[in-house]
């Protein structure tokens, strides 16, 4: 359908206002909510792939995500009644002591771009706050971010806190940020490290499908 292609194309260009208008038009024309949402996710998927391949950079991701938000805001009231469910639910935050959020926000945008529901815990998040949020929101995954070598150690405490709370088996723990490596992920017993936001979203979808 042309209008769905147009939504995807305009989202990729970051044309937020156009996307908003097109989504409204599509709704008015009676196109299924699920299909409209699909066109938004399709556009964001293209941006994610291009981001992974260094064909686009953070600014392009940000404007595309903003356009997607404009579209999903319009769809939101109709999602539940049309039986459209999120792919999964994720709690995300930057770990305690670390106030940096651009990386965490990028991952959040990419996760939403894959149709996941994301609960953003912000920055400076204590291990017990991750546990509490995961229980309260019945999350499948938690994503922990750190920019500093001096704060990445908190991720190990997060893993321990989930063990102690007895919910480690129920929740996948994903980690990321500049100093993080696969070796570190293995050492602390987290479930996945991904080097960029788009790959993180792919991994999260994979976890939700299992």
């Amino acid at each position: 359908m042309q209008i769905l292609n147009d939504i995807s194309e305009n989202l990729q260009k970051g044309k937020a206002k156009v996307v908003k208008e097109l989504v409204q038009t599509a709704l008015n024309e009676g196109i299924a909510v699920k299909e409209i949402l699909g066109s938004l996710l399709d556009g964001m998927g293209v941006i994610g792939e291009k981001f992974k391949n260094n064909e686009v950079y953070v600014p392009e991701v940000l404007v595309a995500a903003r356009a997607m938000n404009m579209g999903t805001q319009i769809l939101k009231p109709y999602l539940a009644e049309n039986g459209v469910e999120a792919v999964g639910r994720v709690c995300i935050g930057t770990v305690k002591g670390d106030l940096h959020d651009i990386g965490k926000n990028l991952v959040k945008m990419m996760l939403e771009g894959k149709g996941l529901e994301v609960i953003d815990l912000g920055t400076d998040v204590a291990p017990e706050a991750f546990v509490k949020a995961a229980i309260e929101n019945d999350c499948t995954i938690i994503c922990c971010s750190a920019l500093l070598t001096t704060t990445m150690g908190v991720m190990e405490e997060v893993v321990k806190a989930f063990n102690e709370a007895g919910i480690r088996e129920k929740v996948k723990i994903m980690i990321g940020g500049a100093p993080i490596t696969q070796e570190f992920c293995d050492k602390i017993g987290a479930d996945a490290y991904t080097p960029d936001a788009a790959t993180a979203a792919d991994k999260a979808v994979e976890f939700c499908k299992r």
Binding site: N54, V56, Y57, V58, P59, E60, A178, P195, D196
Partner: peptide
């Protein structure tokens, strides 16, 4: 810079 590539990319 980021860990991989530039934040804004070379063109911008």
């Amino acid at each position: 810079g980021q860990q991989r590539g530039m934040i804004m990319g070379a063109p911008l």
